[in-house]
């Protein structure tokens, strides 16, 4: 079973405790009244869907009950790192360094 590091529980927890919650860092238009249809469309429907590094929200629903963000490789399905909700998107250099570390020998 896949273990996912919850940044709140600070330990690897079994994947069945978690629920996927879509792409991370999707920003809602700051002023909904003046946002254009195109802005709403982008917020509601446009997702990056990359083959590779993906920023995702995860929900530790059967654990601490917190949402957090994860960087996951959609090709290898590996979790590269997880961080608390509200924290900034990690730099690409940081992610790449971790990916090298996690390569099997």
């Amino acid at each position: 079973m896949l273990l996912i590091d919850c940044p709140y529980c600070r330990q690897g927890r079994p994947e069945i405790e978690f629920s996927h919650a879509g792409e991370a860092h999707m920003e809602r238009p700051a002023d909904p009244e003046t946002a254009s249809d195109a802005q709403w469309e982008a917020f509601l429907f446009h997702r990056t869907n990359p083959a590779g590094i993906h920023f995702e929200r995860w929900y530790h629903i059967h654990g601490c009950g917190c949402y957090f963000n994860a960087v996951r490789d959609t090709v290898s399905e590996k979790f590269i790192l997880t961080y608390k909700a509200g924290e900034p998107r990690p730099a690409v250099s940081e992610i790449e360094a971790l990916m090298v570390e996690k390569e099997p020998e």
Binding site: C9, R13, P14, I16, E17, H62, G63, C64, G65
Partner: peptide, 9 residues
């Protein structure tokens, strides 16, 4: 901890 036992929380 809160967790899962045989699919029940």
């Amino acid at each position: 901890t809160r967790t899962v036992l045989a699919k029940a929380q």
